[in-house]
Amino acid sequence: MNERSISSLTQIWHVAVHEILTLLRSRRVLAVLILYLIFAVLGSLGYVAALEQIEQQMREVLLAGGTPPDQVSTTTSILGSDAYKKILAFFVGAKPDQLASVFLESPFVPVILGASLMLLPYLVLLLGYDLVITEVESRSICYVALRISRSTLILGKYLAHALIFCGLTAVCSIMLLLLAMRLSGVTDQITTATGLLRVWVSLIPYGLCYLGMIVLSSTLVEKRRSALTFAVVVLFVFQLMAWAHHLPNEGVWQWLQYLRWLSPSTYTDGLWLAGVVEPLIHVGALTAFALLFTVAAIFRLNRRDL
């Protein structure tokens, strides 16, 4: 690595540190952490409670039907049963035997991944929808743009948000693990921990992809006040594109179905799958989207007036 690239990396790091300090002072990080935890905890508790309720009702039915009590608990254990696999596979949109085992062994892990896949794009958006346009609108970017390239600025801000994202999801995963350990029904804590680790690792490319999208959208808008709306619309359009495979399989609709491959949301299914190759292909696709969005953001910022 030559001196200039080291210097650029150092500048990216300085921008990232500065951005993190600014974000921490804005308390947005705390708000996002609390929101994420509330949704994840409520979702997990609700999901576990629902499973317990179903088991309880089954137990009562079996006992009323004359099943010996010692056989009832074995019969009613939903977790690990075929029915549970089928329910989970239905939500994921995969075949039951394709699911990774970590999602079948702990009720917490799938609900955390599911909730994260649903919520995180919006939390990433909340954290950074205006990360470039604020500086352009206030013209504080002018001070920085004379000292570092615009690409360095984007990469530094991206790194800051990526680190915050990784940190937030890690903190949440640990807190959820602690919660899981205190709750009855989660007997195998190592399984839960392994599952949460996999969820966390899977969420990194997913979060980075949406982060790239948000960075890009914040370079495209002209005014800060329209940044949030624009980012939500962009996110919604991409999620809508992922639904294109539900379109009728005829005429022009058939061709529109291909739009789903242009949406990152399409590639989240792979995060649930067993094995290495399938999940890696989907992770690769999400990483490629992250790269594409970030390069587009750099291109856009380099071409626009400040």
Binding site: T22, R25, S138, R139, S140, Y143, R150
Partner: peptide
């Protein structure tokens, strides 16, 4: 930017981040 600060400027109507 290659000159790393050899050129500096005071832009018109520019702000600093308020919280820092």
């Amino acid at each position: 930017a290659k000159l790393r600060g050899a050129v500096s400027a005071l832009p018109q109507d520019s702000d600093f981040p308020p919280a820092l």
